[in-house]
Amino acid sequence: MDDKIYTVTSPVMGTFYRASAPGEPPLAEVGQRIKASNIVCVIESMKIFTELRSEHSGIVKKILVENEEPVMKKQPLIIIEKE
């Protein structure tokens, strides 16, 4: 069962953003089907924006962090059920 779950984690301490720019729609919503290499969120650390891409195709199960919330390195952000 667990190998069906893929978790996107933050590569760096920073701020979590659900959209690629203010006013843009969120990159991923719960229930949404995404493809491998799709951008699912953005982490800003020290003014550097890093787009996080999903390594797997699947369905977004849970978004664990609120928009603009601070996150730690390796913190789980988004849970995706692999397809």
């Binding site: 760096v12 920073g14 550097i48």
Partner: peptide, 14 residues
């Protein structure tokens, strides 16, 4: 800068 030259100058807060 608080960045890591060994890791492509990635931010290194802490």
């Amino acid at each position: 800068n608080a960045s890591d030259p060994e890791d492509n100058f990635m931010p290194s807060p802490g």
